[in-house]
């Protein structure tokens, strides 16, 4: 649990620093020079039109997609430089610093909820199984799905699956939590619950990057908002500034369209 992350002395240290990040998919340039910083216990909301590169950005931060150029420093890990082949080979190191919650959950269907949460800490991080299981049970209980611990993902509702996905990421004790559109795959009546949950995590001091279309939610939990447009951060700042008085026409249009 991240209680130690709330130490005031460490609050201003960057947990994530991204400089000049470029990435392409199938030869098409998707990220065209992204700079971002997230401080300890900070919550960055990334907003932007469909196809602007939000998911690709999260994937790069976790090393799932290998960027073409630029630099990423995450948590206490070393800098990963993407400007040469040797640096790009270090991309998988980023995975030890951050954990990702996927838009479509991507739970392992052949494992119970409990096993989904425990497999990373036990098999990869080689932590003691009994302690990991205790911690996993506490996470599932806390997310209101303690009684579903031995259910398989296809026996869980979308909202419950998402909670398992969140528990799975938290159990890895990452320095940085990456969440891709937590509300988009959910029934509307479940949206409030997950936003509540995420707000609690933010209040607890988890450092997060959240991609979202819910501007009210972004305004609520984020201390910083970045508007991504065609692979660039067109505008960023505190939620009040970006959402209420955007400088760019593009941002204004985007915010206006989503406001209804």
């Amino acid at each position: 649990m991240p209680s130690e992350r709330l130490e005031p002395s460490t609050r201003r240290t960057p947990v994530l620093s991204v400089r000049g990040l470029r990435a392409s998919i199938a030869g098409r340039s998707v990220l065209r020079g992204v700079d971002l910083t997230v401080n300890r216990s900070g919550v960055l909301a990334v907003i932007g039109p469909s196809g602007s590169g939000k998911t690709t950005l999260l994937r790069c931060l976790n090393g799932l997609h290998v960027a073409d150029a630029g630099r990423i420093t995450a948590g206490t890990g070393p800098d990963v430089h993407f400007d040469d082949a040797a640096g790009r080979r270090d991309a998988p190191r980023l995975r030890h610093r951050s954990a990702m919650v996927f838009q479509h959950h991507n739970l392992f269907p052949h494992m119970t909820a409990m096993q989904n949460v425990c497999v990373g800490p036990i098999a990869v991080q080689r932590r003691a199984a009994d302690l990991v299981e205790q911690e996993a049970r506490a996470l599932l209980d806390r997310f209101g799905i303690g009684d579903r611990a031995s259910s398989y993902p296809n026996e869980l509702s979308g909202g419950q699956q998402q909670r398992v996905g969140l528990a799975r990421a938290l159990a890895l004790r990452p320095d940085l939590l990456l969440v891709d559109e937590p509300t988009s795959a959910l029934d509307p009546e479940l949206v409030g619950d997950v936003l509540q949950l995420m707000s609690e995590l933010a209040a607890e001091g988890w450092t997060m990057v959240v991609v979202t279309h819910e501007l009210a939610f972004a305004a609520d939990i984020a201390d910083h908002i970045a508007f991504l447009h065609e692979g660039r951060v067109l505008e960023e700042g505190p939620p009040g500034a970006v959402l209420r008085s955007p400088e760019h026409d593009r941002t204004r249009q985007f915010v206006a369209r989503l406001a209804h």
Partner: peptide, 16 residues
């Protein structure tokens, strides 16, 4: 593909 993503995300190697 998402299954590979989730496994890699938690730091699993290709073999694992």
């Amino acid at each position: 593909r998402g299954q590979w993503d989730a496994a890699y995300m938690m730091g699993m190697s290709h073999t694992m």
